[in-house]
Structures are given as C-alpha cells and as structure tokens.
Amino acid sequence: MKFDPRAGEDTLWRYADALAVPDLGLTLGEGRTPLIRASAEGEDGLLLKVEYASPTGSFKDRGAVTLITLARLLGAERVVADSSGNAGTAMAAYAARAGLRAEIFVPGGTSGKKLEQILGHGAEVVVVEGSREDTAEAAAARVKETGAFYASHVYNPFFHDGVKTYALEIFERLGAAPATLVLPAGNGTLVIGAHLGFTALREAGLVDRIPRIVAVQAERCAPVAAAYASGATEVPPIRPGPTAAEGIAIAAPARGPRMLEIVRETGGMVITVSEDEIAAAHATLAARGLWVEPTGAVAYAAARRPMPGTAPGEIVVAPLCGSGLKASL
C-alpha cells in the first residue's frame, strides 16, 4: 500500500493512492471525521472518533463510496443491498449521487427514521418480515433474478477497502497506532476494515504493530462473544433477544470466523455490554454533547471499562458510529 495523503483533499479520496478503486469523482464529503477526547477532562487515554459526522450519519459511508464507485466502473445501472439500516442509507445516498437506481432490503423492525432516509434518497425499500439473515437471502435472490450489482457491505471486499480509511485517519492524526481499538461487532465490517487498514500500514513500515482489537456485542445478541468464550473458530447462530443496539443485532454473522481470527491475532477479545450499560453510555454521551443512536453507544459502553492488557495512559480509540437522529432509546 502507498500512503501518500493528498494535500488539500478533505474527503476519503485523500487516500486514493491506498485504495483499490480509482477516484471517479464520486463523493458526499465522507471521511476526515473528528477524533476527540471522551470528556473535557480527558478520560485516561480514551479517544472517540465521531463517525456519525459522516454525510449519511454513519461510518458505512466509507465503504459505500468505494463500492458504488466500483458499480459505476463496471457499468451497473441498478444496485441491490441488504441492511439493518445504516448501510442501506449509505448505499441509497451514494447510488443517488452516482445516478444509479437502488433497491434496499431491510428486516422488519428497522428504525422508521432510517427507512425515511432510504426512501428520501429515491431508493426502493423492501421490508422482509424475518431475521437479518432472511433479509440477506431475499436480497441475494433479487440479484440472481435481475442481474443487478450486489452492493453487499458484508461480503464485498471493496466495501472493507473503503472502511480501512478509518484506520488511516487515526494513524495520520496520531502519527502512530493506538494501543487498542474498541469496535462494535455485528457483521464485522468495521472490525475487518480497521484491521485491514492497520495491516497495510504495518506492511508499509509505518507502524510496528496492529492495535489490539476488542470487538463488542450486545449481551442479548452475542454469537461472536459466545464462540470466542468457548474457543471456537466458527460462529453458530443463536436465538437473539431484543436489544436497543439494532445495528449489530446479527444472530448469524457471515464474517464471524474472520472476526474471531482478527481478535485473536491482535491479542484482543470479544466482550458484551448489557442493555443498562448501553443506556447509561448513551446518556453520558448525550450529556457531553454527543448524540448517537443506541448502537453508537455500544463501543463507548465497553471502552469505559478498564481494558485488560492496556496500560494506564495508553491510547484507546472507540467510534461513535451512528447519529441519534436515526434511532433513539
């Protein structure tokens, strides 16, 4: 990977030389999100990356811009995506910007505000009354039927390639790798993308290690945490309970095995947070001027705890992934 940020470029394409798709001019101003202290007093080494400052209100814009750029490059006219909300809104927005038609499959129970956003961008919404996995199957069937471009944030590596800029921005801001990344884990796009970015930086000789990656799940829907605790390498599906963290409520994550590999390779762990912890973290963030959706409070809820293996004063970075304007407690 070549790391040569473009001077004066304030979008994700600042890192065009490090990306797998060319810059075709598609952008909504994504990337370059703030990295701030967790509190005015500065909680010991904890920094928050304000991903909800992204154009559609979540980090999914990073992957959407590269994936929709790929769709344009391949001459696609229509894209199909499946999502619990944020990836769908990002795909709808970037497809609209690129002049492509979009069909977004979402599970029943998806936040009404997210549905309004998807529809507002001109995409067609298909609500699947079933699990998140049923939604993905319905989208895949639609792709097979129509031949549309499958804009999958779960399977397509070009989406993860865009998300790796999360890591590149942290490195550029700090001039080093933080000790630990605390990341929400549903389908694993941020876990995989952040790991990809720091791996590329290490291979380029710019950092000497990849940060310890701590993946966080809601206690009521934690298949990866259960597999990690048992020492498994596969992630059996579970029967989930209701959780405020709808964005990571994935009962059978397709990239679960890869998340386990990343966590173990980096000396990290998979942990869970309770509904009470999510609510408390959400309230604390709001009291500090940071308005996130409940899923966006998950990583902070975990990062407030002492991180095993992280020495006092070492830098820990957690994202605030989704805007509170999308969903609320």
Rank of each mutant, 00 (worst) to 15 (best):
E169S: 10
I170V: 15
S111E: 05
R202G: 14
F158A: 06
L28G: 03
A225V: 07
R142H: 12
L285W: 04
T146A: 12
G256Y: 04
L325H: 05
H195L: 03
A87C: 13
R6Q: 15
G25S: 05
P157L: 08
T11Y: 09
E265Y: 02
S84V: 15
T266C: 15
A151R: 10
L196S: 07
A151Q: 06
L285I: 01
R220D: 05
A18Q: 15
T33L: 10
A96I: 01
Q217N: 08
V65Y: 11
S58L: 12
G313P: 04
L73D: 06
P308N: 10
P211K: 01
P55M: 03
G45M: 00
A176W: 10
L73V: 05
V143A: 08
L290P: 02
L190A: 12
L329H: 03
G313A: 12
G122W: 08
L74P: 08
E43A: 12
P184S: 05
F171N: 00
I192Q: 07
I68W: 06
G197D: 08
G88Q: 01
W13Q: 08
A98F: 09
L67G: 14
C221S: 11
C321W: 00
E265I: 01
I104C: 04
A311I: 13
F149H: 09
P223G: 07
A185S: 11
G112V: 04
N156Y: 03
S323K: 09
L206P: 12
S152T: 01
V235L: 13
T272C: 12
E41T: 05
K49F: 00
Y300W: 13
Y166E: 07
L190P: 08
S274G: 13
P157G: 11
E9R: 07
R258M: 10
D208W: 03
W13F: 15
G120F: 01
K60F: 11
F198S: 12
G231P: 15
P157V: 08
P236C: 02
C321Y: 04
E9G: 08
E124A: 07
R202F: 13
M259P: 14
T66G: 10
T165V: 14
E219A: 15
V298A: 11
G122M: 10
E116W: 04
A71F: 05
D161A: 07
E103A: 05
P308E: 10
A249D: 01
I250H: 11
E219H: 12
G205L: 02
E145I: 00
S39T: 14
L168T: 06
I271C: 15
T310M: 07
Q217K: 08
A96F: 02
A244L: 14
Q117Y: 03
T66S: 11
L100E: 01
G108V: 13
A327Q: 10
E77H: 10
I250V: 15
A87E: 13
A16D: 07
V224H: 04
A283W: 02
R255H: 11
A302W: 05
E129H: 15
